[in-house]
Design a protein around this nucleic acid. Structure first.
Lengths: 106, 106
DNA sequence: GAACATACTATCAAAAATAATACTAATGTG
DNA sequence: CACATTAGTATTATTTTTGATAGTATGTTC
């Protein structure tokens, strides 16, 4: 890795930032990491996020490979979100961030 | 911590997100964690960040307690940025994010 | 056959983040 | 006195992110 690339937008750090930088993404990952969650469940736990925004962020997390989205062919619809392997490998980082936040900030 | 607060904007995770969520902040922290850096040095290493944005982000990191800003009473001016204790405690998280990014993303 | 439930989608508006550009202050040097 | 140097500020765009609101599809239940 040359010097000009070390701090560029290609570096691991910036990729991570782009993937989980959204306003709600860390919390969503955390919540889904606890167990598989249905869309409506998530919506109820995060009442401040609008439905369209929730859909958008979940889909982005999915296309970034962090979440798996399982659609049941039922009516009314049923969609479950869970962490992928990649997402699971991110969970320890979530935990250290949370802990750092809780224990260091007022 | 009650359930309504667990995923609220008060939780550690969201505080962290607000503090380091800026487009350049993770990289800036990383660069400054390596050693104390002068403003102009940072500017040269991150040519894509405008000067006003750089100032803004560094000041935010300072007021969030992650960076220390040392002003030398000289002309031309000399300002050095370094990590605070709090910032230093964040460095391991930076490393794990970087590693996760490097090793898991194409 | 009307209402219900769920997970959406589509538009448009508002707010927040970032960028572009130009300007400033102060002093040592030639 | 003009000029270079450094770390800024100020102002105005532009872009990106987020929010508000309304509408859709469809099998099941009443």
């Amino acid at each position: 890795m040359n010097h000009s690339k070390k701090y560029s937008s290609d570096c691991g750090l910036n990729k991570v930032q782009k993937m989980v930088g959204g306003k709600w993404k860390l919390s969503l990952l955390w919540y889904i990491s606890e167990e598989t969650r249905r869309f409506g469940e998530i919506k109820r736990v995060f009442p401040d996020i609008t439905q369209s925004m929730l859909t958008k962020q979940l889909r982005e997390l999915e296309s970034d490979g962090l979440l798996h989205r399982k659609i049941y062919k039922e009516v009314p619809p049923r969609v479950e979100y869970s962490l992928t392997k990649l997402g699971q490998r991110f969970v320890p980082i979530l935990h250290s961030m949370s802990e750092w936040g809780e224990s260091n900030l007022e």
